[in-house]
């Protein structure tokens, strides 16, 4: 596993070495046109595959280079843990933005994961085939709907609902707990962002979890039911353990989607800088929103562009780490199930 991650980092060298190896192994001479075509076709195709491997590194290096000015001016801990964001005074603390991203993602996952997994269980184990036949295209369609549209829905439906119903009600019942109390009257809040994100990642998580559960062989369910287990017991003790790695991967997939999502969140989350969120009704300012909102003026203030590119770098690193882990887990399952 580790070697694969390392291999990505050293990919350009490796790919060159592999090309060299290819050359040396093909010692026999080409006489026909077909043979030449075959050889050059292979090389051309191979170079195309170098591209994605190299691209990962190139994006990383390019963003790192653009971030360097600010890394030279300030220490990494100062940037990551600093709480003040005043570009005009040269203060660039990422901490509130990182926390904003984490808060929104956490709320989204807490809402989405149980509902999505139960929905996937329903579709895969309980529902009639006609329900699945109806839902599959709808899920595919919704997975493809642009984030701006989810943002529009969030502004039209979620924000007013949070403002008028959820915030006052929860504030009344659970206001003594700081997690649910807030003086933000607008409805543009972490909860709104979380709800929109939860609904947005739901089609992806449901589809993947459903597919993974379908890969559990029918005979295995039958074996459990044949000794007199109920359907739920079969799901709990047989289907879920067998599908668990894939389900984890589905959730991590949703997680990385949620972390990187820009537009939908940006439109409903409030975007208030310099304030650490304490309650789900507080506004927040996640990293992607920070980048998207300020790109216009970033060239006019010293170090501002470097700071924003740094934000992009942080975002990329976090998401990539989650993604590599989930990809490796998924590959492991596929290998184990013998595909």
């Amino acid at each position: 596993m580790c070697s694969e991650v390392l291999a990505v980092a050293y990919s350009p060298f490796l790919s060159w070495a592999m090309l060299m190896k290819q050359k040396t192994t093909q010692k026999d001479v080409c006489y026909t046109m077909r043979c030449h075509k075959e050889r050059w076709g292979g090389r051309l195709f191979f170079f195309a595959t170098v591209m994605p491997v190299a691209l990962v590194l190139i994006i990383f290096v390019a963003l790192l280079l653009r971030t360097r000015p600010i890394l030279e001016a300030k220490s990494i801990s100062e940037l990551l843990l600093g709480q003040v964001w005043l570009p005009f005074q040269g203060e660039f603390g990422f901490f509130p933005f990182i926390m904003g991203t984490l808060w929104v993602t956490a709320v989204a996952l807490i809402l989405a994961v149980p509902l999505c997994l139960l929905s996937a269980i329903y579709l895969s184990e309980y529902s009639r085939p006609s329900t699945v036949a109806l839902m599959k295209p709808v899920l595919d369609l919704l997975a493809g709907i642009p984030s701006v549209v989810y943002g529009v829905w969030g502004m039209l439906a979620v924000v007013p609902a949070v403002q008028k119903f959820i915030a006052p009600l929860l504030g009344k019942w659970l206001g003594s707990i700081s997690l649910f109390s807030s003086d933000n009257p607008t409805g543009f809040s972490i909860l709104s962002g979380g709800i929109v994100l939860a609904v947005m990642v739901a089609p992806v998580i449901i589809s993947v979890a459903y597919e993974v559960m379908r890969t559990v062989p029918f005979g295995m369910r039958e074996a459990s039911l044949a000794v007199g287990a109920t359907q739920w017991q079969t799901i709990r003790y047989v289907v879920m353990p067998q599908a668990m790695p894939g389900i984890v991967a589905a959730v991590v997939l949703g997680l990385s989607r949620a972390m990187g999502e820009t537009m939908a969140v940006l439109m409903v989350v409030g975007n208030v800088a310099n304030k650490l969120p304490r309650s789900i009704f507080d506004p927040a300012y996640p990293l992607p929103a920070l980048i998207a909102n300020n790109y216009g003026e970033m060239m006019s203030i010293p170090l501002y562009d470097a700071a924003l590119m740094g934000a992009a770098l942080v975002l990329m690193l976090v998401v990539v780490i989650f993604n590599v882990i989930s990809a490796l887990i998924l590959r492991q399952i596929l290998r184990r199930s013998g595909q």
């Binding site: 694969e4 291999a7 990505v8 990919s11 490796l14 595959t49 994605p52 491997v53 691209l55 990962v56 994006i59 390019a62 963003l63 280079l65 653009r66 997939l253 990385s256 989607r257 972390m259 990187g260 999502e261 820009t262 992607p288 980048i291 998207a292 790109y295 924003l308 590119m309 992009a312 975002l315 990329m316 998401v319 990539v320 989650f322 993604n323 590599v324 990809a327 490796l328 590959r331």
Partner: peptide
């Protein structure tokens, strides 16, 4: 390895691609 890096690219948020494209 190509598949793994495809997975990595697949997960990179589009705002990061935007920042990279801008660079």
């Amino acid at each position: 390895m190509v598949r793994l890096s495809m997975d990595v690219l697949w997960g990179i948020p589009s705002i990061v691609y935007g920042a990279f494209g801008f660079t």
